[in-house]
């Protein structure tokens, strides 16, 4: 199992794809060093387009490339990539059903010291709300590699949410990522945590720490946020009767909302709480400090688990 940032997995997969698929093209908007597209650009300069600091132009250029049969990866920091280009994504990509893969790195509070203007916490809400859009957030390096490759085989628009910090390796190469499938990564019996991205490792850590208190927690990695793996979510919820959701995103519009919607649609009422940014902007500080202060760390996941269990009917 390889430790590493999901952006690193993305960059590594792009280079592999460059060799195996002549249809793959990559665009960046002037931050290719940080987004890890640079290596693809060095190896395949004729299929790499650094558009400069103009995300809107990049997004539509990617759409134009896609409409000629290319698989176009449009890349930047999540904060600039999405906020600035909602109209371009909506019309030229989602509505036109163009085969563009939007890859946003440096998502969430995890980005740290650059502050709230760089901490993208509303991108899942943006992208989930768009028809035709698939939304994926890998939880480690290996899953990022596999998700990037899977997106080439998947026709249609997608958002790949990536992060800056190094994450602990959760999967080895025997893992088989599939778009639309969530993955039980730890089996317990008292409560299920549906987590995504970097919050998967926080949740696993919380589950470990609760073992000494005889609390047994299941952790599910929900790497495809749209379409949601409703079958598995309903099954695990019914099995445990208590739910925590966990994500580095605002509490509005992300995984928590998606899970609640699914449960409500199926008339399932169980105690549930969400670990997420509580509808405010954060501040500067390291990712770890922000996770602690703004309620996203393993400690907070553990606290939420206990609070939910206290409400669970015996």
């Amino acid at each position: 199992m390889k430790d590493g940032a999901t952006r690193d997995g993305y960059g590594a997969a792009l280079v592999e794809l460059g060799h195996s698929d002549a249809n793959v093209v990559v665009l960046d908007s002037g931050v290719s060093d940080s987004t890890r597209t640079k290596k693809f650009g060095q190896e395949f300069p004729e299929r790499f387009f650094n558009m400069g600091i103009s995300e809107a132009d990049m997004m539509c250029t990617a759409a134009g490339l896609a409409r000629t049969g290319k698989v176009a990866f449009a890349t930047s920091f999540a904060c600039f990539l999405l906020g600035r280009t909602m109209d371009q994504i909506l019309v030229s990509i989602a509505y036109s059903n163009s085969n563009v893969k939007i890859a946003g790195t440096h998502s969430g509070l995890a980005v740290g010291e650059d502050g709230p203007s760089a901490q993208m916490i509303v991108d899942l809400a943006y992208t989930r709300a768009m028809p035709n859009m698939t939304v994926i957030q890998p939880a480690d390096w290996e899953e990022a590699v596999q998700a990037t490759k899977a997106l080439v085989k998947h026709a249609g628009p997608a958002y790949l949410r990536l992060g800056r910090p190094k994450l602990k390796g959760l999967y080895d190469s025997s893992y088989e990522f599939e778009i639309g499938k969530a993955n039980v990564i730890r089996k317990g019996s008292d409560l299920v945590v549906f987590a995504t991205g970097g919050l998967v490792q926080e949740s696993l850590q919380a589950a470990e720490s609760l073992q000494s208190e005889s609390i047994s927690v299941t952790v599910v990695n929900v790497s495809t946020i749209k379409p949601l793996d409703q079958v598995l979510i309903l099954e695990e919820t019914r099995k445990h009767g208590a739910v925590v959701t966990a994500e580095d995103h605002n509490i509005i519009g992300g995984l928590g909302d998606a899970v609640r919607h699914t449960l409500t649609d199926h008339q399932i009422a169980v105690p549930i709480q969400s670990v997420a940014v509580k509808d405010h902007f954060a501040e500067t500080g390291s990712g770890a400090q922000l996770y602690e202060k703004y309620g996203l760390s393993a400690n907070h996941v553990a606290r939420n688990i206990k609070e939910v269990l206290a409400k669970k009917k015996p």
Binding site: T61, G64, K70
Partner: peptide, 30 residues
């Protein structure tokens, strides 16, 4: 919208078509 034969991409929000066209122009080179 491209569901109509002969239409290459959706338009209606102004300002996007030149970038889209440029993407297609780049694809010709690739």
């Amino acid at each position: 919208h491209p569901k109509t034969p002969g239409v290459e991409i959706a338009s209606g929000s102004l300002g996007q078509g030149l970038s889209v066209g440029h993407g297609m122009a780049l694809a010709a080179r690739v």
